[in-house]
């Protein structure tokens, strides 16, 4: 499911126009981003939560050239799935 499909599904279920849904989705994303920038953990309801973690700097070697590179530290967003999603995934057999 991509963004447009999501919008369509939401507009159908909530009886809202697609533009309205789109605007609201943008707002949600903006709110979540703003909270993540503050390093807060944001809950995504029954899906899980998003949090910011720091990846430490490390030295990696380019296998083809053998050059050693110092990869700087990084802040990344990490998704942690909720227990309900976990349970659902267990039932879902590949």
């Amino acid at each position: 499911m991509n963004s447009s499909e999501l919008t369509a599904a939401l507009s159908q279920r909530l009886q809202l126009s697609k533009t309205e849904v789109n605007k609201r989705i943008d707002d949600i994303a903006a709110v979540i981003t703003a909270e993540l920038v503050k390093k807060n953990t944001v809950s995504l309801g029954n899906m899980g939560s998003l949090e910011v973690v720091k990846r430490n700097e490390r030295i990696s070697v380019n296998p083809s050239s053998g050059k050693k590179m110092l990869i700087p530290p990084k802040l990344v967003v990490k998704f942690k799935m909720s227990n309900s999603l976990k349970d659902r995934l267990k039932d879902l057999k590949p």
Binding site: M1, N2, S3, E5, L6, A9, L10, R13, L14, N22, R24, I25, D26, I28, A29, A30, I32, T33, L44, G45, N46, M47, L85, R88, L89, L92
Partner: peptide, 22 residues
């Protein structure tokens, strides 16, 4: 709530969920 539910279901049914800006 509706947003997260749809996203949840969409993820499980399509095995992929793309949300703009997220």
């Amino acid at each position: 709530k509706e947003f997260f539910t749809v996203a949840h279901e969409g993820l499980l049914s399509d095995k992929i969920m793309k949300i703009k800006n997220l």
